[in-house]
Design a protein around this nucleic acid. Structure first.
Lengths: 341, 341
DNA sequence: CCATATATTTTACGCGCGTAAAATATTGAT
DNA sequence: ATCAATATTTTACGCGCGTAAAATATATGG
């Protein structure tokens, strides 16, 4: 019964006994028509299952109800999780979200922005690739479309920036590791895709300095987004070369840490904070699988819900015309203590 | 310079010295206009960066170039991976894919199909939730829109079914486990969301019978898609109750196996196929992180590329008008031997 | 070079809906 | 009941493009 013979709003309006423009108003905001009209329209909708043609709706409208959600990599559970949260917030607010993944490639990112323009979105939520992003394209896009950048800050552009407080992440976990055992070294990619990695490293250095400990940073080779593999190889290599001056490793992120744990396992190093353990390993991000590594990984978790809610609300406010000065909102993470450190 | 004053195809056509309908033809198929026209149009595109209004393009067209890709859960790396592959195939074939996640909830699945109708897609690729899917809605949708169901078969509906050969998965790994040590028991969820789980169990039973071994199936409680947690709890419980009559565990899928490994770790059971190891654990799916579990997990991997390619090609053929009888294509997986078994 | 077949472009019209402005209905106070 | 003020509906027009049919250009064969 999905096609009940009603082809357009004209016919639907005729059958429900209301003028077409009133029906049009109803679909844009059910509360903008008289109660009696609304009831008649809704009865007719139930009866004939009519939906307006979405293309005709949007073609002559300055701004649609579409919102684009762009992340660097949907197969990364962190981004999948936050994208899911954002999607729900958009739906709840009456928007039509569409998700896009840059697949770790700046060319795709540019292409997505290009396609997004033609969708005439009311707004866009984007987690840029970071270092690899085309800043000019992104900046131009922000000028043309209400855009909120989250996760990785790329200049002071867009409505505002919302992300995690990576300084606090690294400070708190460094603090914890120093108090509970040997001071950690910092294990990271030499050329990380994501600028947050730099903040975490710097915060680690600052924390170590404030405690009066000598810091050590191990920067490993590797390009791309296969962090587990990069961490695994890097750890194997560093272990073979006995690079570590401490038994405690703070990884720049959880996925590197997962690779690190595998290297420890294959090198016969027992990971943990107990007497007989050889090494302590911690991560950062609160990756969903860190609970199930062996041993479970000590980490700092993003506050997914707070980040996505803040990002969504700020975008909606901007769409509604609120003019606020650019700002950066950084949300604290939560230390999660597990057996690995 | 994105807005160069050109507002519509009329103006663009005038400037490039070609009639508007010819320009329209060009955008629908650049090869359908004379070479000289094409070159002039492309020069003008470069110069003025004009793009047709996507809504106006689609509102008066029987069929769009949109393709919907629907998966049960985008945060599950298996679906994220296969969705990514499908997306690329659609783009390569000149379609505009849009990804949707049912978030494990049949209500969302129905809602997505409902929204999809109004997008007037040329076709849809859907991995249904499975057991929980609303079959009537899905069947009706398949009648109205060219739809290809993949991963989980739900009746003989849609263009064809494309998925992995789960019978072969379980047979081959059971075979391997029997030959290389004690025959395995089968560890699964009692009420799995995905019908493939049943095929795997049955195939395990058949394989065991053919070898003349006594099968054992451990079916654990748990609802939803948090498979690692369900596997972890189920394994803890089963280990405590000493339910296993063998030292070899074949898990119904990798995510259950990841939880199982964690339980082994926390119970002090060393997992592996070496002399001193207490237990062997294997999974099925080829989850991307199984390489980095401790120990790395023996599994059967989906042939992601073959599944997605077959699904995409079949859909495109149907969109192009090819009428083929419904069929089921099941693609073999590849045994991946690692340290866990 | 001409006639015919074919490829390409142009003419002409309509799709389904948004929206300003005009017309009408409703409300509230007197 | 009356009248202004306000809420709601209707009139009237146009958005940007797809597409069938008509007109024209190009290719082919003799």
């Amino acid at each position: 019964m999905s096609d009940s013979g009603i082809k357009n709003m004209e016919q639907f309006a005729a059958i429900s006994g209301i003028s077409r423009p009133t029906v049009s108003k109803y679909f844009n905001d059910p509360d903008s028509v008289r109660r009696s009209s609304r009831e008649r329209i809704e009865a007719a909708i139930d009866k004939y299952n009519y939906r307006p043609n979405i293309y005709a709706m949007n073609q002559n409208r300055a701004m649609t109800k579409n919102i684009g959600i762009v992340v660097p990599l949907l197969s990364d559970t962190y981004f999948a999780e936050i994208a899911r949260n954002l999607e729900q917030h958009c739906i709840d607010a009456g928007y039509r979200p569409t998700m896009f993944s840059s697949h770790g490639d700046p060319k795709f990112e540019v292409e997505i922005l290009d396609n997004l323009r033609s969708l005439k979105p009311a707004g866009v939520l984007i987690a840029p690739l970071g270092r690899a992003s085309n800043r000019d394209v992104l900046e131009k896009f922000c000028e043309d479309v209400p855009t909120l950048i989250f996760d990785s800050k790329v200049g002071e552009i867009g409505i505002e920036f919302v992300g995690s407080d990576n300084v606090q992440f690294a400070r708190d976990i460094t603090d914890y590791l120093c108090r509970s055992g040997e001071p950690p070294c910092f294990f990271e990619m030499k050329t990380p895709a994501n600028p947050n990695a730099h903040r975490r490293r710097q915060s680690y250095l600052d924390a170590m300095a404030s405690f009066g400990f000598e810091p050590q940073v191990i920067s490993i080779e590797g390009e791309g987004w296969a962090f587990e593999e990069i961490g695994f190889r890097g750890a194997n290599d560093a272990l073979a070369r006995k690079l570590f001056s401490t038994n405690t490793i703070l990884c720049s992120n959880d996925r590197l840490a997962i690779g690190f744990l595998t290297a420890c396992y294959e090198n016969g190093l027992s990971v943990g904070r107990s007497e007989g353990d050889a090494i302590r390993v911690a991560g950062q991000d609160g990756h969903r699988l860190t609970r199930y590594t062996c041993p479970p990984l000590t980490t700092v978790s993003h506050n997914y819900e707070a980040v996505s809610l803040q990002a969504a609300k700020a975008l909606f406010a901007a769409i509604d015309g609120e003019e606020n000065p650019w700002k950066s909102t950084r949300i604290e993470g939560k230390l999660i203590l597990r057996a690995s450190a």
